[in-house]
Design a protein around this nucleic acid. Structure first.
Length: 652
DNA sequence: CTCAGCCTTCTTTTT
DNA sequence: GAAGGCTGAG
């Protein structure tokens, strides 16, 4: 039995042992939010609620995995059929079961963002001559996505967020409808569709909703401040039968408005559910008072927020260091040197993180760390499944799983010598005429009137596809993936990439991951929703020992903590990022991001900024320190009362 | 007509 | 560092 009183503070205890009904938990940074949620699940299970009657929605796969593990450790048993996962994951499970009720085929495939953007680009180009300022595929995708997530139409999104595309509106609407048709033809859905179709399903099929919501006695939502309108309706409906909905979040840490998140949802939860109980967690266990003081002073500059006062329970520590530097190269040298000193004095590298606003802010540091052979783990940049070679190899499997997936055909075909866009298109045309494109591929007819030069390549393609399809759909995904590599993709890698070995290693890792899935559909479905190699490691329970310094964007650092945090690139224009300030409420969102970054640190915080920023073309420009630094310093003329310790460069 | 290689452009944040 | 556009070669 768990001793809740002993393990939890009074604030947490009240939230964990609360009764039913709607509950809002405002959880400040480092106040034990995850602890509260995991104990709540444990508490429910110990009170006799069956795991399959509990739903726990999170934002990342990692958070879901971590929380289930922690609950299992707490209660000393496996949770089996607990509904835990990201919104997309849960929606995916539901949609597989009820696809036909919303007009989808049961075996639909999932497109990632890159595929979606590419398809949208192709569609818009097919509309003929477009002005140069017409949005590119990835921008169109963003516009549509924002529309779906905020539950508004394209007109509204363009009017409020993209007024400069007003002239393109008619074309955009046309593209949207073509996009919908093409997805249907190809039997594909995009990320947003997963949730959107579920909500449609709930709206139009009360019997389905009743069945699902009836089974969910308790619904818990993590990171509620980052939910979109669409996700909100999804959650509300799932909790509609029993109304035992507990949402946990912190309005001060809402940082995803760019993809439709609206922390208005957390602010207005009490109005939507007038009988909601509200609990606040305001004790911070993580950071020293000095670090917390800095964070509190910063966020105080925001107008729209819940009032709360985070208190540290820790003894005094060092003031956060403010480190002015001349250039980003010097900044990289400083961080690398300081890291070296920490490691020499016995700190574990895994207890240290370097955070930044945007991927490319870490370029110089990456080079410097490599030069000094300081091992680091980078949690940003290209995501594992979006790397070309991973998508290439997987595209053969996608054809096998869903022969109508034109994207996959085009991608695979184009990989071979002398097969370009035109030949690939021609091949697809021929193959898609018949009911089963794979039959045509294997027949003699396939090579007829194909360009002579391309025949060898097409033959190679056919060889791989034969390997992948000969067992029908009964082959194990891991085996099929190996076959793609053995039957020719391995050669392709070696001939094309200088780093073929490391790419091949990626694929073996992928194949090991694939081994846990029985069918191709299970594998491909999950694959689209996972995002990083690190997540594969975690999913397989072999997280490596923390022997590396972590480099991460602030976004990806949310919910994590380190003993020492370096926040780099705190120059005006880099952070807040000039482009983000153009958005409505952009400054406040950037400040929340600053708040998230600062509150990741337990013991020491270094805030670094280069004063010279090199920009493309025009040499170096002088940039002052971030306004987030200046506004905190303002009014603290005396160095003794400043929240910062100014770092002397001569230390370098 | 088709492909491949070179050039320019842009690079916020992510399930 | 990658994706689209342009141009020369086949």
């Amino acid at each position: 039995m768990i001793d809740y009183r002993k393990d939890l503070n009074p604030e947490q205890f009240r939230a964990v042992t609360a009764g039913g009904g709607p509950i809002l938990v405002i959880a400040g940074a480092g106040s034990g939010k995850t602890r509260t949620l995991t104990y709540r699940v444990a508490y429910l299970v110990e009170s006799g609620i069956r795991p399959e009657n509990i739903l726990l929605a999170t934002f990342t796969n990692k958070a879901a995995k971590e929380m289930t593990c922690r609950v299992e450790t707490l209660i000393g048993m496996e949770l089996g059929r607990l509904w835990a996962g990201t919104f997309h994951h849960i929606a995916h499970l539901i949609l597989r079961r009820f696809a036909s009720r919303v007009g989808l085929e049961r075996r639909f495939g999932i497109m990632d963002e890159e595929d979606a953007a590419h398809l949208l680009g192709t569609i818009s180009r097919s509309l003929g001559d477009l002005p140069d300022e017409f949005p590119r595929g990835n921008v169109i995708r963003e516009i549509f996505s924002l529309g779906v997530n905020t539950q508004t139409d394209v007109e509204a999104v363009v009017a409020f967020r993209y007024p400069y595309f007003t002239d393109c509106l008619d074309k955009l609407l046309e593209i949207k409808s073509l996009y919908r048709d093409r997805k249907m033809e190809m039997n594909l859905v995009d990320f947003d569709d997963l949730i959107f179709y579920c909500v449609e399903l709930f709206r139009s099929c009360p019997d389905v909703l009743e069945e699902l919501a009836g089974g969910l006695h308790y619904v818990l939502v993590d990171e509620y401040q980052d939910t979109s309108a669409l996700q909100n309706e999804f959650i509300d409906r799932l909790a509609s039968s029993h109304r035992n909905l507990m949402v946990v979040g912190d309005d001060a840490q809402s940082i995803y408005s760019f993809r439709g998140a609206d922390f208005g949802h957390i602010m207005e939860f009490g109005r939507k559910y007038p009988d909601a109980a509200i609990y606040k967690l305001e004790t911070n266990y993580r950071s020293t008072p000095e670090i917390l003081d800095l964070a509190n002073r910063s966020i105080a500059n925001n107008e729209r927020q819940f009032f709360k006062e985070l208190k540290s329970i820790r003894g005094p520590g060092a003031r956060p260091a403010l480190v002015p530097l001349r250039t980003s190269v010097q900044q990289a040298e400083f961080v690398a040197q300081r890291l070296g000193e920490f490691v020499l004095s016995g700190s574990a590298p895994g207890e240290i993180a370097v955070l930044y606003r945007a991927h490319f802010h870490s370029m110089e540091l990456q080079m410097e760390l490599t030069r000094r052979s300081i091992p680091f783990e980078i949690r940003s940049g290209i995501r594992f499944f979006e790397q070309a070679h991973v998508k290439d190899a997987v595209s053969f499997l996608r054809i096998a799983a869903n022969p109508r997936d034109e994207n996959a055909w085009m991608r695979s075909l184009s990989l071979f010598g002398k097969v370009g866009k035109k030949t690939a298109e021609k091949a697809w045309k021929k193959v898609s005429e018949k009911e089963d494109p794979l039959d045509v591929l294997m027949s003699d007819e396939f090579l007829k009137d194909m360009p002579k030069a391309a025949r060898a390549g097409l033959e190679e393609f056919r060889k791989i596809m034969r390997g992948v399809t000969e067992d029908g759909l009964d082959g194990f995904p891991a085996v099929l993936l190996e076959r793609v590599i053995d039957e020719g993709y391995g050669d392709h890698l070696r001939s094309r990439f200088p780093d073929a070995q490391s790419r091949a290693d990626d694929l073996s890792q992928l194949s090991r991951y694939a081994a846990q899935f029985r069918t191709l559909h299970d594998f491909l479905g999950e694959l689209a929703l996972f995002t990083s190699a690190a997540e594969i490691d975690r999913a397989q329970g072999r997280e490596r020992p923390e022997d590396r310094v972590v480099l991460s964007t602030i976004h990806q650092a949310k919910g994590l903590e380190w003993s020492v945090v370096f926040l780099i690139g705190c120059a005006e224009g880099m952070f807040p990022l000039a482009r983000a300030l153009k958005e409505d409420g952009g400054e406040e969102e950037e400040r929340r991001l600053f708040y998230v970054a600062a509150t990741r640190a337990k013991d020491e915080l270094y805030i670094c900024y280069p004063s010279m920023v090199f920009r493309r073309g025009l040499g170096g420009t002088y940039m002052g320190p971030s306004r987030f630094i200046e506004e905190i310093r303002w009014g603290c003329a005396k160095q003794e009362s400043s929240p910062f310790e100014l770092w002397q460069i001569s230390n370098l």
